[in-house]
């Protein structure tokens, strides 16, 4: 099969996946679970097929690689289709785990660990906290029923179309591409040391800037979250001394 045929196959598979997610998306009533599963399975199979055969003359990934790939894609699909935010968050943990596994297999151990620590350890915890903060309390009877914006999607068809076109275009790009063969990266002292040297040698200033960015964000988050009440509920400013008419009613600029 030539690349063009593979590409058309991939388009079909992407369409199947998009359909599957379309059926799986929450939209008020019952979900057509069967259709979702069917199309999802077709898409998963197709992904495997493309991965092993469609990407030109590259190395064939291992079974473990394939499993983690499917796990990542499937969990991501669940994140965007699950009705309950908490479950979405948990599925996202799975995505992160799978991704870091893939990274390990690609030789990026340090990045994989950082990914695990930062995402699973920090970011996801924040998400869960926020989800808990942002749900009605347990005494509230309504909290048991689904809120409207979780139960209903917004224009699922258009969104899926956009996602499909994007995925299809990118896949087509990958499939038709002539992949170059390159030498493996030399890492005499191991991946961590190599990445560290790379960061501090080539990216020293961006690293510093990233530190600054983190600090700014921290302060920003504090400043935003500290504000308890909207402005109009704050006590009024004390009245000012009477002044001349010029510049009397001044508005901030």
């Amino acid at each position: 099969m030539n690349a063009v045929a593979w590409a058309y196959l991939a388009y079909g598979l992407m369409a199947a996946g998009a359909l599957g997610i379309y059926f799986a998306l929450p939209r008020g009533g019952r979900i057509n679970r069967a259709a979702a599963l069917l199309f999802g399975a077709i898409a998963a199979g197709g992904i495997l097929l493309v991965m092993y055969q469609g990407l030109g003359d590259t190395a064939r990934p291992s079974v473990v690689f394939a499993v983690f790939s499917l796990l990542a894609v499937g969990s991501a699909a669940r994140v965007i289709t699950h009705r309950k935010p908490v479950y979405s968050a948990l599925y996202f943990v799975v995505v992160v785990l799978a991704t870091s596994a893939l990274a390990v297999m690609a030789g990026a151990e340090f990045l994989a660990m950082a990914l695990l620590i930062v995402y699973a350890g920090a970011i996801l915890v924040t998400y869960v906290f926020v989800i808990m903060l942002a749900q009605q309390s347990a005494d509230d009877p309504e909290s048991l029923s689904m809120v409207d914006y979780d139960a209903n999607s917004r224009e699922p068809a258009t969104a899926m179309l956009a996602g499909f076109v994007l995925a299809a275009t990118l896949s087509g790009l990958f499939i038709q591409r002539k992949w170059p063969s390159v030498a493996a990266i030399e890492e005499p002292a191991g991946n961590t040391v190599a990445v560290g040297q790379e960061l501090l040698a080539r990216y020293a200033i961006p690293v510093e800037l990233a530190g600054v960015l983190l600090m700014v964000a921290m302060i920003g988050a504090l400043a935003i979250a500290r504000r308890h009440l909207p402005n109009d509920m704050l006590p009024a400013r004390p009245p000012e001394l009477p002044v001349g008419e010029i510049g009397k009613t001044v508005e901030p600029f």
């Binding site: 000012e240 001394l241 002044v243 001349g244 010029i246 510049g247 009397k248 001044v250």
Partner: peptide
């Protein structure tokens, strides 16, 4: 000096 009493610093 007399006309501008408000937001003197900006002015």
């Amino acid at each position: 000096f007399h006309a501008i009493q408000d937001r003197a610093k900006e002015y």
